[in-house]
Write a protein that binds this DNA or RNA. Structure first.
Length: 906
RNA sequence: GGGCGAUUAGCUCAGAUGGCAGAGCACCUCGUUUACACCGAGGGUGUCGGGAGUUCAAGUCUCUCAUCGCCCACCA
């Protein structure tokens, strides 16, 4: 005998092992030689990560598709793997070292990298096991890592190839610099945050007049949010159409303290409405100013170093040709080596003291921050490697236009195009140690040799110099997303021409969160199209992001992280999976609420108990059940409903409407199968012929077996477990059993049983209105039944009696006295309850009923008397309305008759 | 500043191609009917955010306004 409740913990662990042992997740397992393929590459989780709700959702969706297609007999590959996650992993390991009072720098690069590798080996298995715990069925025998040897080979191949085509190049540009992590980052890794600060208005004295803070003709006013960069100012710009200020063009101002002479220039990009209308230009510390500087050939004067500390003394260009005034000396003394925040304060003090501070206005504006470090980034002039993304984007754009790749939901196309159409060079070098080191070697004269190996680089250098020269390798590593972009083809063995690539590329679908559309999806499109000449996936399914109960993003610092492992321990992996799917509509947010997960845990218990009932009442039969051979309408009905739900589920999964599939199954199992079918057959189990009993028992088990199959992609553990216990299970695991394709339908039986369900519900509702004790058996008197009704009533009377607690059904022409009445279709149902009946209450109830009906009738009549409606609406709609009207009129007439009976007998 | 999405029952949300407003949870009443109390039966009057338009017909399509959220953007 089974326990009353399902215990997921033991079961899930046991079954996960069984699957793995049987090798059923191997690519192509169980498929025919000529089967269609279906492939997915997993979004590789960070190697140091641990399972969070986003992973749980993402992998559940993929697993549903994979299990579904595997059961449909396809040759399925789900390629797993992990990402080395450059910055993230390096940060984690550095933090660990810091706890041990060690540092990366002291350790040296080689040792540090070894340390990271050790950490990866330890940590990598954790998330893989957590994914197994969730039941995901990827082929772990083929696990790949974005830093493994074969993958590195792909990375080198791509880098060298793009370099030689001129699509990768080195450039000295302003770059987003993270002063905490001390590396360049790409535009995408910059987060704009609104900061409430000030706008400071400075007075810069005009050249050739004596500066007087009280005389506005002796200075110009410029506004800035970044006072600390003023020492790098090289010009002042105004809009040429700014009537107020354009006349200043050509004059010069003196940069306070420093004494540098700044020309006032005109440039279209200046907004005369903004700030004071005059902008100070600091090309070394601002992207916009950098462009203006380039247009006007202005000098670049850098006053911040890589740590964003102010550097004055060491700055040769800054000092050149300047007399060091007293003030300048003082400035250097106060500022040199200070960090940017202190520097700002000190500059402001000095400006104020010297009368150069004109005004301060509170001002809130967007300040770029590093997404990992959280500190404000600095635009800094450095040498970095870039990809010409605009070039690579072209085929990636047209492929989506041509629908070679479909984005779901399709609204994301617009976002994709907008970004791709405006894509800028992608900075791919990072000043980190953990990652793919850039395959570039430099000769003594700085000449760069880009080759896959040092040997090859040396060979080329030998040819170039005519003699052997010492080469030094570029110290930088590549952006993690550079290697992630190769995932769909490199994980299948590229650059080798592998059988896997042949068979499984392009993949069918990529499942990912919409937050990765630029970081990852777009870049995979670019790289894959360039190197494979084919899209990486036919479909991209973008799902919502998991939020907490109140809709906020989960983060460790907020402490609102919901741990999927804990939820699985509490409710089981199946319940978690089911709730994620139920919530994964196509919105943007998905709120996790444990009450809901508990609800699906209850659903597991419900299913478990249906199986338990089956085991108790319909144990093993040596019987090959064939739906077409059934005789009993109750069976033919439930089989019809099962066919309906199975095709609904199949269609829904195939079109990625997972929520719909899950809802259909939930409602079939709970409402149709448990609440009605099992209740309906209970009386039959005690009191039926042998052949009927065999049919019923066969039908119950057969339905459950099919339910297990249909539910398996959603709830793999419990269904596998129940499958193993069910009579029809031979040695096969459910995971590789064929998906059911059901055809049996008997609409007549379905009509009968749906009528029965409605009838019983109506009687129960009437009983409820009368507050009859549920144990009380009553007599049901039926008035106005026709032959058809009578036939139905007698065929199903044992079911009706049991489910509605009726001791006897009789037929009358008139309603009996002291009976509660209710109209059901064209009959009046009466329950004579004698003195228990409160006639007045009944009258009120019936009157209210009539009122409702009249409203409906009025509405439909209005519709039908509208000629436009009759003329223009589809004929089946008009017919349906007429039929409804007829039904309501019968209802009205019968209800009035019931009421009249009371009125006349009172 | 631009783009996208949301607004439906107390809460969380479903409602493809317009045609009788739904589910789960919560709540109330009743119930130890031999699978399940993680259960069963019964219980819903919601200006479908406001306004306008198209249509015989609008939660659904168009416009507009409001509120909220997200993404993108170099603006001092």
């Amino acid at each position: 005998m089974l326990e009353k409740t399902y215990d997921p913990n033991d079961t899930e662990r046991r079954i996960a092992v069984a699957w793995e042992k049987a090798g059923v997740f191997r690519a192509g397992a169980g498929a025919d030689a000529r089967a269609e393929t279906f492939s997915i590459v997993i979004p590789p989780p960070n190697v140091t990560g641990s399972l969070h709700m986003g992973h749980a959702l993402n992998n559940t969706i993929q697993d549903i598709l994979i299990r579904f297609e595997r059961m449909r007999g396809k040759n399925v590959l789900w390629q797993p793997g992990m990402d080395h996650a450059g910055i993230a992993t390096q940060m984690v390991v550095e933090r660990k070292l810091y706890e041990k009072k060690q540092s990366r720098k002291e350790m040296g690069r080689k040792k540090f990298i070894q340390c990271v590798w050790n950490w990866c080996h330890d940590s990598g298995a954790i998330i893989a096991n957590q994914l197994r715990r969730l039941g995901i069925s990827c082929d772990w025998s083929r696990e790949r890592f974005t830093m493994d040897e074969r993958f590195s080979d792909a990375v080198l191949e791509v880098f060298v190839s793009l370099y030689k085509k001129g699509l990768i190049y080195k450039d000295k540009q302003l770059v987003n610099w993270d002063p905490k992590l001390l590396t360049a980052i790409s535009d995408l890794e910059v987060e704009q945050k609104e900061i409430k600060g000030n706008l400071w208005y400075f007075r810069y004295p005009l050249e050739g007049v004596l500066f007087n803070p009280l005389d506005s003709s002796t200075f110009v006013v410029v506004a800035t949010t970044r006072p600390e960069t003023m020492l790098g100012d090289v010009a002042i710009a105004v809009n040429p159409n700014d009537r107020l200020h354009a006349k200043l063009v050509g004059r010069r101002v003196i940069l306070p303290f420093v004494g540098r002479k700044l020309s006032i220039i005109s440039d279209d990009s200046v907004d005369p409405e903004s700030g004071s209308g005059l902008v100070k230009i600091t090309p070394a510390h601002d992207f916009n100013d950098f462009d203006i500087g380039r247009r006007h050939r202005l000098a670049l004067i850098s006053v911040l170093d890589r740590k964003a500390d102010i550097v004055l003394k060491k700055n040769f260009e800054f000092m050149k040709g300047l007399e060091r005034s007293f003030l300048l000396n003082e400035l250097i003394l106060k500022l040199d080596g200070q960090n940017r925040f202190v520097g700002r304060k000190k500059i402001l003090e000095m400006m104020k003291e010297a009368g150069y501070l004109h005004e301060i206005k509170p001002y809130s504006h967007m300040v770029p921050h590093g997404d990992r470090s959280g500190v404000p980034i600095e635009p800094i002039l450095t040498d970095q490697w870039y990809i010409n993304a605009a070039e690579l984007a072209k085929p990636a754009i047209s492929s989506v236009h041509e629908c070679s790749t479909n984005l779901i939901p399709k609204g994301w196309k617009k976002t994709y195009f907008y970004w791709m159409d405006n894509i800028k060079p992608w900075c791919i070098s990072r000043q980190l140690w953990w990652g793919h080191q850039i395959p570039a070697w430099y000769g003594p004269d700085g000449k760069v040799f880009v080759e896959k190996t040092e040997k090859e680089a040396e060979a080329v250098a030998l040819h170039y110099y005519g003699q052997k020269m010492r080469l030094v390798r570029d110290q930088d590593v590549l952006d993690t997303w550079f290697s992630s972009a190769l995932w769909p083809f490199a994980s299948l063995g590229w650059p080798q021409k592998t059988e896997d690539l042949n068979m499984y590329y392009p993949t069918n679908i990529l499942v990912t969160g919409f937050d990765l559309i630029f970081f990852w999806v777009a870049r995979m499109m670019m790289m894959s199209l360039h190197f494979m000449d084919q899209v990486p996936f036919r479909t991209v399914f973008m799902h919502a992001l998991v939020r907490d109960k109140s809709g906020a993003k989960m983060s460790k610092s907020k402490g609102n992280v919901v741990d999927p492992l804990q939820l699985m321990d509490e409710y089981g992996a199946d319940a978690l999976r089911f709730s994620l799917v139920m919530m994964a509509g196509q919105g943007c947010d998905l709120k996790v609420d444990s009450a809901r997960i508990a609800g699906y845990r209850n659903f597991c218990t419900k299913l478990w108990n249906a199986a338990r009932f089956c085991k108790m009442n319909a144990p093993m039969q040596d019987f090959d059940f064939v739906p077409e051979e059934t005789q009993l309408n109750v069976n033919r009905w439930v089989l019809t409903e099962l066919t309906r739900v199975s095709s609904h589920v199949t269609e829904s999964i195939a079109s990625y409407r997972f929520h719909e599939a899950a809802t259909a199954l939930y409602s079939f199992v709970w409402n149709t199968f448990c609440d009605w079918y099992l209740e309906l057959i209970k009386p039959l189990l005690q009191n039926s012929s042998h052949s009927d009993l065999i049919e019923i028992k066969g039908c119950v088990s057969w339905c459950l077996d099919n339910v297990y199959k249909l539910l398996h992609p959603f709830m793999p553990f419990i269904t596998e477990d129940l499958w193993a216990m069910s009579k029809t299970a031979r040695s096969d695991l459910l995971a590789v059993t064929r998906w059911p394709l059901l055809h049996f339908r008997d609409e007549g039986a379905a009509d009968d049983m749906n009528w029965l369900v409605e009838l019983v519900s109506a009687i129960r509702s009437l009983r409820g209105d009368l507050s009859l004790p549920s144990k009380l058996q009553v007599v049901l008197v039926i008035v106005g039944a026709d032959d058809f009704d009578c036939k139905r009533l007698s065929s199903y009377q044992s079911m009706i009696k049991r489910l509605a607690r009726i001791e006897k059904i009789t037929f009358f022409n008139e309603s009996p006295t002291l009976a509660a009445q209710m109209v059901f279709r064209n009959m009046i149902l009466c329950i004579p309850i004698g003195s228990l009946l409160d006639v007045e209450v009944e009258q009120v109830r019936l009157r209210r009923e009539i009122e409702k009906i009249l409203k409906k009738i009025a509405k439909i009549t209005e519709k039908l008397s509208n000629n436009q409606f009759i003329e223009k609406a589809k004929s089946e709609i008009v017919m349906a309305e007429r039929k409804r009207l007829e039904e309501y009129q019968i209802l009205k007439e019968r209800t009035e008759r019931a009421l009249a009976f009371f009125d006349s007998n009172n």
